[in-house]
Design a protein around this nucleic acid. Structure first.
Lengths: 196, 196
DNA sequence: AAGCAAATATGAACACTGATCAGAATAATG
DNA sequence: CATTATTCTGATCAGTGTTCATATTTGCTT
C-alpha cells in the first residue's frame, strides 16, 4: 500500500525527493516529531530504507528540508496577508492569523519548523526561507511604527511576535491557551509601544 | 563509572527515584529531549535497564516527573521574585527574569517542561505544579491592572507572557533573539494594556 | 551509437533504543 | 518467624538510524 497510485515503477523512482517531503510531513502530522521515523517514510514511499540518504543525507536532512519548505509556504501566506490591507496594524494581524492558519493546514511542517534542536541550522535554504518569512513581518511592523522609532525597537517588536507565534505552536494543545483570542491582545500591546 | 560515590550498594538501591530524576535531567541537559535515553539514565544510575519502570512506569513517566519537579522549582523562584518588590510591574519583570535564570540553571528540566507532546498531561503532580507557577504570574499581573479590568484580560496578559516565555525557551539558540532584551519590551507592552 | 561515469536504489549489517516478563533478592508486615 | 509486597536483574522482542558493498539506471562524452 504505497502512496503511489501508478501500477508499477522502475528501479529509479523519478521524483523521490518530492514524495519523501510529502510523506515525511504526513508522518510528522500523524506521530509528531518524537514519533517520526525515517524508515516509516521510506515504507510509505515504497522504497528501500537507505534510499532517502541519496537525497537528504540523514534524518536531520529530511526534517530540515521539510522545515525549509514550511517557511517557504509561510512566506507566501504572509505576503498574501499583507496584500490584503493597507493598514499596518491590519497587516500584522493578518500575518498572525496566517501563522495560526498555517499551523492548522500544515501540522507536519509546523511540528519541526521551530524545533531548532532537530534541524541543520546551517542549511542555506532553511536560513533563507526563515529570514524571508520574518522580513515580511518586520516590514509591516516598521510601517506601523512612528517615523523616529529606532530599528532596535522594531526588531524587538518583531522578535516578540515571532517568539509568541512559536509559543502558540508549541502550546497549541494546552488547555487554557486560545491563540485566536490572544493574537489581537498581543498585537494591540505591541502597537501601543510602536505608536508611543 | 556510576554516579554514586559510595563504594558499594546492596541489591536495593535505596533512593533510586531521586537519582533517576537527577541523572535524567543531566542526560536531558547534555543530549536534549531528542537524544534522551532511558537506558543511558539507568546506566548512569548503575542499575538495570528495567529498574526505572518500578518507579516511573515508562520513559514518558520519568520525563513527566522531571517536568513536574521543574515547575515546582520554578514556582519557588517566582515566589522569591515576587517577594523582592511591592510594585506589580517590577514583580512581573522579576518573574520573567526568574524564568530566564531558571532556563540557564536548569537546562535539563527546561528542555521538557513545555514539551507537551512528551509528557503525561494528566499527571496530577505536573498539572498542580504548572498551575501553581502560573498562578503567581497571574496574581502579580492582576495586582498591576486597573481595578475594573476584566479577568479575561488578565488571563490574556498572563497567557501572552506565559507563551512568550515558552517561546524564549524554544528559541534560546536562535541567532537574533535576546530574551534579556525582549523581556522589558514585552512587559512594557502588556502593562500599557493593563493600565489603559 | 557505444561506452563510461555519475546518480540512484537495494538489501544486509551493526549498534542502538523502549518495553515487557519471569524470576531472584530484599524489605515490610502480621 | 512466615508470608506478602516491593524492588532489581537478565533476557527477549520489535523497532530505529546509519553505513556499506552491490545492482540498476540515467545521461554525458566521445
Amino acid at each position: 500500500m504505497t502512496s503511489k497510485t501508478q501500477p508499477r515503477r522502475s528501479y529509479h523512482h523519478g521524483n523521490l525527493p518530492e514524495v519523501l517531503l510529502k510523506d515525511g510531513a504526513q508522518v510528522l502530522a500523524e506521530r509528531g516529531a518524537d514519533g517520526f521515523s525515517l524508515r516509516e517514510v521510506a515504507r510509505r514511499a515504497g522504497v528501500a530504507v537507505a534510499a532517502p540518504s541519496n537525497h537528504f543525507g540523514n534524518s536531520q536532512g529530511l526534517l530540515t528540508a521539510i522545515a525549509a519548505e514550511g517557511f517557504g509556504i509561510l512566506a507566501v501566506l504572509n505576503e498574501k496577508a499583507v496584500a490584503g490591507s493597507d493598514d499596518a496594524r491590519e497587516q500584522v494581524l493578518g500575518i498572525c492569523r496566517a501563522y495560526l492558519n498555517f499551523f492548522q493546514t500544515h501540522p507536519g511542517h509546523s511540528t519541526v519548523m521551530f524545533r531548532l534542536d532537530l534541524l541543520d541550522r546551517s542549511n542555506p535554504g532553511l536560513v533563507e526561507n526563515a529570514l524571508n518569512a520574518r522580513q515580511i513581518l518586520y516590514d509591516s511592523i516598521a510601517r506601523g511604527a512612528r517615523e523616529n522609532t529606532s530599528p532596535d525597537v522594531i526588531n524587538d517588536a518583531t522578535n516578540t511576535i515571532w517568539a509568541t507565534m512559536h509559543g502558540f505552536q508549541g502550546l497549541k494543545d494546552a488547555n487554557n491557551i486560545d491563540p485566536e483570542r490572544l493574537v489581537p491582545f498581543i498585537v494591540d500591546a505591541v502597537f501601543r509601544v510602536l505608536e508611543s
